[in-house]
Amino acid sequence: MPLFAQAINMLAALFLLVAFAMLSQRRLANLINLYALQGLILGLSIGVVAYGTDQPKLYFSAGLNLILKVIAVPWLLRRLVRKLQVQWDRETILYIPTIMLLGLGLVIFAFNASLPLSELAGTINHNTLGIALASVLLSSLMMILRATAISQVIGFLALENGLIFAATSVTYGMPMVIELGIALDVIVGVFILGVFFFHIREQFDSLELNYLDRHED
């Protein structure tokens, strides 16, 4: 296996590792750091793909990812957390090994689900499709298991990371326009959600989504 393919495999594994770490992280502040780390791995892997397949335009995409996901979005999130004064909030989540056992099941499922697809892909890194799919599923699981709005948003952002990862490592990049569009969407989404949070908080004095449910009744 050429070294660059190995490097992508390695980054894929690290990507999955971070996804698991996010799944089992209780502290909001650490969760944002992990999100930044995931962005870094994503950026690196796009860079490696750019180098390995000799597609200069992917370097641009890698840079965009790094700026957006390692610096901009985490900065916005941190600011939001500070403003809302929830940086030391801890999620009351399930017993971590139990969550990881669930995650483990998802990984096995994702791999077997992606098996027929990745055989079609034909690129050297068809194995990473399973990992990308697994990270997407793990992020969804995280969104389901979380109680506060901000961690759900981080789960959503991580899900988006997983999708981009799938796109780059399996098909070696997607058209630039789409990528820029997604990037803009993410930024705007974070802004809008930030505004939402302030409103939710003013209304209910908490970001726990249980309060919303109760209000519906």
Binding site: L17, F20, S24, Y95, I96, P97, L101, G103, L104
Partner: peptide, 9 residues
Amino acid sequence: GTAFMLAVL
């Protein structure tokens, strides 16, 4: 338990 699960992973 987390260590165990990571090893299994």
